[in-house]
């Protein structure tokens, strides 16, 4: 597969399937993943977060090149899986049963 992320972040290419545009897609992938999958994504991406911020902050947020935009989307996914990995130890919010909550408005970028 062609690399999609900036070359500096080639180590995250195996997790490019986490480059997801909408909260609904990110949340669905989180719920469909095992804790092992969430943990390995987190373990790869979290240590890179500070470098990701430095890299992206040098670029205009409203006009990101495609590879940077995908890196940002991957970072949104990291944020989304941080709760299961850091706190819940399970993909779903504990005691949330069948409850669901849809993001109906979210930022374009």
């Amino acid at each position: 597969m062609n690399p999609v992320l900036p070359p500096e972040f080639a180590d995250l290419e195996p997790f490019a399937d986490w480059c997801l545009h909408s909260e609904a897609e990110r949340y669905a992938k989180r719920l469909a993943s095992s804790m092992g999958e969430l943990q390995s994504f987190y373990d790869a991406a979290f240590p890179r977060l500070e470098q990701i911020l430095v890299y992206l902050d040098a670029l205009p947020l409203d006009d990101l090149p495609d590879d940077a935009r995908l890196l940002l989307e991957l970072s949104y996914s990291l944020v989304n899986v941080s709760f299961p990995v850091e706190v819940w130890r399970q993909p779903r919010v504990p005691d949330s049963g069948a409850a669901s909550m849809d993001a109906v408005v979210e930022p374009a970028v």
Binding site: L53, D57, L61, L72, V79, S82, V109
Partner: peptide, 18 residues
């Protein structure tokens, strides 16, 4: 104003939903 700001807000929004 930048990606860091954006991700901070994302974390607040995700946390709200949890």
């Amino acid at each position: 104003k930048d990606a860091t700001d954006r991700l901070r807000q994302e974390l607040a929004a995700v946390t709200f939903k949890e």
